[in-house]
Design a protein around this nucleic acid. Structure first.
Lengths: 191, 191
DNA sequence: GCCGAAACGGAGAAGCTCTCCGGTTCGTGT
DNA sequence: ACACGAACCGGAGAGCTTCTCCGTTTCGGC
């Protein structure tokens, strides 16, 4: 059901729930009690579960705006001249965003879309990244064994160990880019 | 209290709990219900909590043997000629081990040792890695910005996104070693 | 304003963690 | 062998969370 469907009170409660969820998740992390979100939104817990049957549904909805911004950003960067810089700029913004959501984005990236969830935020990020990756790969600027899924998985791993510290996430991403092994003949420029 | 102290029935119950925990965690992951572990071990839940006050205590104990093996392995590798190969061989074994524990090692690596837990498995791994890292760094075989904690953090991130798939973890570690960016002039040899 | 459908919310079931306390078992000293 | 204190055990239950049922309220078209 689209978010703008249904009765007026339904839409109002949905918005209240999303606002409360953003606040509570941002404060207490992605594992915060759902009941507190319902209380904070001023609705019953049954209403929360009716709108968002699982915790994941709520996490997906909370991230919609941030993911949308990243998708727009990917479109902008796809028009830039330097394919390699565009790719890493976007990945840096993704890892910084994920590092500021207290694990919310991490949960979404962690589990695969699954058969009954084809339209999740994770696949939107995948679709946004794919053109940037394809262009950089065609330019020889990406390790030939590194696929789109590998990049997303690695960024996910980084964001999960750097919750609440975007700078640390950005630093580890730079290490991933240049490589930790002995082939660091030239340090990669950040962003 | 050392694991070999106390009365005979206490030691027996401790062993039963550890065996049950290894089985249940291995089957259902690090978030499995503790009550089921107690039931599977044939003891009351109070006994489980008396032996292992927190879930983390139990996870630490379950990993003791595996971490011990890795520490021994680090000593062996420290005697090898090639410092770079020794470092990456050990990291590969670590990421493979962590990828087979259904998130158990990941939980331990995730949270810092903390003030009241100076002897956790995470710090044992840190101490095992440090000499390998120092030697490889001295030989110029490691990115100058990559510290011991960075390596452990990155391995943790990789293991957390490759649960139950050691091959995938090993592959991502190889990518981390050689770098995803454009400086992949020579592919890194694995293990 | 009426009324059917849509949506709500509290109460409660079920599951998990952790604690309290009465009862049991161990092992030591005689 | 046996008695006894200390160590240990386990079930019952409190507190918390997720999620569902169902009687009640609210919306909005007519």
């Amino acid at each position: 059901m689209p978010p703008t469907a249904g009765r007026a009170d339904r839409r109002r409660n949905r918005e209240r729930l999303l606002a409360a969820a953003a606040e509570v998740f941002g404060r207490d992390g992605a594992a915060a009690p759902l009941e507190e979100i319902a209380r904070s939104a001023g609705v019953g817990s049954a209403t929360l579960h009716r709108h968002f049957p699982s915790r994941r549904d709520l996490l997906e909805a909370v991230c919609t705006d941030g993911v949308e911004r990243l998708c727009v950003r990917a479109d902008e960067l796809a028009a830039e001249d330097d394919a390699e810089a565009a790719l890493w700029t976007w990945l840096d913004e993704l890892v910084r965003y994920a590092s500021t959501t207290r694990g919310v984005v991490g949960v979404l990236l962690a589990e695969p879309p699954g058969p009954q969830r084809p339209l999740c935020q994770s696949s939107r990020l995948h679709d946004a990244l794919e053109p940037l990756w394809a262009r950089a790969t065609a330019a020889g600027a990406v390790h030939p064994e590194a696929g789109v899924d590998d990049l997303l998985t690695l960024v996910n791993g980084i964001s999960r160990v750097t919750d609440d510290d975007p700078e640390a996430g950005s630093r580890l991403l730079a290490l991933l880019r240049s490589g930790v092994g002995s082939n660091h003949h030239r340090s990669a420029t950040r962003g």
